[in-house]
Amino acid sequence: MQYIWVNGQDEGHNTYIRVPPNNNPVTDVTSTDLTCNVNGLSGANVETVSISAGANVTFEWHQHDQRTGEDAISGGHKGAVQVYIAKAPSSAASFNGQGSVWTKIYSSGLLDPSSQQWATDIVNANQGKHSVKIPSSLPAGDYLLRAEIIALHVAQSYPGAQFYIGCAQATITGGGSVSPPRIALPGAYKGSDPGITVNIYNNLQSYTAPGGAVWSG
């Protein structure tokens, strides 16, 4: 994940994002790398973007450095796209994202069984972008926004699924007072989950992503 957009405004390359050392995937669902990728437990040197509750946030992915015109993820890497959010107890920069703190606000997986069209195909067709509305009922404060792509092309056995993860730091303004459902990452994902260990080439007719249901706010 290399860019975020807030209400259609490009915030710049790697701005407000905890940037991992390379574009290698995470494959161990018990590792703290599942939270915000490698070296992602601190954002001490990362700035925090201000976002109003109810705003539209777009995440933009690329295989290589910046916008080179290639797909966000290799065309053979079929899979799901999800977004989570977690409220920091103090500043976003000092938040490690551990414990039952994450709320799923977006999930897209197998879109068309007949053509085997996946969420990743749509992201690629949209120049690496996918968007989510920040629930307007979330309380104001500092948050981590966590986007993930789950590539399933070699997920027939565990570890096989490839998790591409990006976290951005945000201060949400306005908002409400709702306390949403939360899960832990790592913690909620199991290697045996049908959304993690799955043969997508076996005429798959449905797909259930890990992490439970989307909270709509």
Score class of each variant (00 low, 15 high):
residue 35 T to E: 01
residue 102 W to H: 02
residue 35 T to N: 03
residue 75 G to N: 12
residue 59 F to N: 00
residue 154 V to C: 14
residue 217 G to E: 07
residue 204 L to M: 15
residue 100 S to Q: 15
residue 152 L to E: 02
residue 121 D to Y: 08
residue 53 A to S: 08
residue 135 P to R: 04
residue 32 T to S: 10
residue 6 V to T: 06
residue 121 D to E: 09
residue 4 I to F: 07
residue 203 N to T: 12
residue 57 V to C: 07
residue 112 D to V: 06
residue 161 A to V: 14
residue 191 G to L: 04
residue 175 G to K: 02
residue 132 V to H: 00
residue 11 E to P: 02
residue 123 V to T: 08
residue 61 W to L: 13
residue 62 H to R: 15
residue 79 G to E: 03
residue 115 S to L: 15
residue 62 H to W: 14
residue 70 E to P: 14
residue 57 V to M: 03
residue 111 L to C: 13
residue 194 P to E: 06
residue 143 Y to I: 03
residue 6 V to G: 02
residue 195 G to K: 01
residue 141 G to I: 05
residue 107 S to D: 12
residue 155 A to W: 02
residue 59 F to D: 00
residue 193 D to Q: 11
residue 30 T to V: 08
residue 119 A to K: 00
residue 46 V to L: 10
residue 204 L to F: 11
residue 45 N to V: 13
residue 158 Y to Q: 11
residue 10 D to F: 05
residue 66 Q to K: 11
residue 106 Y to K: 10
residue 123 V to I: 11
residue 28 D to A: 07
residue 131 S to G: 09
residue 23 N to V: 14
residue 167 C to P: 11
residue 135 P to F: 04
residue 199 N to F: 09
residue 129 K to S: 13
residue 187 G to V: 08
residue 164 Y to K: 11
residue 77 H to Q: 10
residue 136 S to R: 11
residue 155 A to D: 05
residue 97 G to W: 00
residue 31 S to H: 14
residue 180 P to G: 08
residue 1 M to L: 04
residue 113 P to E: 13
residue 143 Y to H: 07
residue 153 H to Q: 15
residue 173 T to A: 07
residue 208 T to R: 02
residue 70 E to M: 14
residue 159 P to Q: 14
residue 36 C to G: 07
residue 163 F to W: 07
residue 129 K to E: 13
residue 7 N to L: 15
residue 81 V to P: 00
residue 77 H to W: 09
residue 148 E to A: 08
residue 49 V to E: 00
residue 194 P to M: 06
residue 165 I to A: 03
residue 16 Y to G: 00
residue 203 N to W: 10
residue 106 Y to D: 10
residue 92 A to V: 03
residue 104 K to S: 06
residue 16 Y to T: 01
residue 208 T to H: 07
residue 35 T to C: 08
residue 150 I to F: 06
residue 187 G to M: 09
residue 141 G to A: 09
residue 147 A to P: 09
residue 179 S to V: 13
residue 38 V to L: 12
residue 105 I to N: 00
residue 114 S to W: 09
residue 19 V to D: 04
residue 5 W to P: 05
residue 38 V to R: 07
residue 65 D to S: 13
residue 170 A to K: 01
residue 128 G to S: 12
residue 170 A to H: 05
residue 72 A to C: 15
residue 7 N to D: 15
residue 50 S to A: 14
residue 209 A to P: 02
residue 146 R to Y: 01
residue 11 E to I: 06
residue 38 V to N: 08
residue 10 D to N: 13
residue 152 L to N: 02
residue 47 E to T: 13
residue 208 T to C: 11
residue 81 V to W: 02
residue 176 G to T: 04
residue 113 P to F: 08
residue 108 S to V: 02
residue 150 I to T: 10
residue 205 Q to T: 15
residue 89 P to L: 03
residue 173 T to H: 10
residue 194 P to V: 09
residue 192 S to C: 11
residue 146 R to G: 00
residue 141 G to S: 08
residue 86 A to Q: 01
residue 173 T to C: 08
residue 45 N to F: 11
residue 206 S to I: 04
residue 9 Q to Y: 14
residue 15 T to D: 05
residue 77 H to L: 07
residue 111 L to M: 13
residue 15 T to K: 12
residue 140 A to P: 03
residue 43 G to S: 12
residue 21 P to T: 10
residue 98 Q to P: 09
residue 181 P to W: 02
residue 174 G to T: 03
residue 168 A to D: 01
residue 114 S to M: 10
residue 82 Q to K: 08
